[in-house]
Amino acid sequence: MSELVLDLEFIVGHYNYWMFVILMMTGLYVTVSRGNLVKKIVGLNIFQTSVFMLYISMGKIIGGTAPILIDDPDAVYSNPLPHVLILTAIVVGIATTALGLALVVRIRETYGTIEEDELLVLEHEMEFAEAVQGGGSR
């Protein structure tokens, strides 16, 4: 019986980390396997959120409170340092996401598609056409 309780405690104590891994791998899978560039950026956002979750999970103390000081001298506060790092990371994350989306918009305007497979084909055709033109003029 005590063994079972111990195991339950182990599972509860590590559940956050496992879920973080699953989230991170979902984000990685979306990023590498989907051809659509907007979908890739959403995947990167999932990946990013999973890292936020890992940091904040490590700073949490059970029975603690948010790191805003109160008069009670016995109060336990969660670790404020990861909060600072992640807070700025979220705002930087949206700025870089916007940059990625702007690149997607420009790619769509230039090539008429945002599917990776079609972009590679177009790129290949353009290189081929250039090579043929270069050969013809010589």
Partner: peptide
């Protein structure tokens, strides 16, 4: 800075082609 940047980003996307 953040308020101005967010508004500028939104306008850039919304007023594009």
């Amino acid at each position: 800075s953040v308020a101005a940047v967010m508004i500028a980003l939104f306008v850039a996307f919304a007023r594009h082609n």
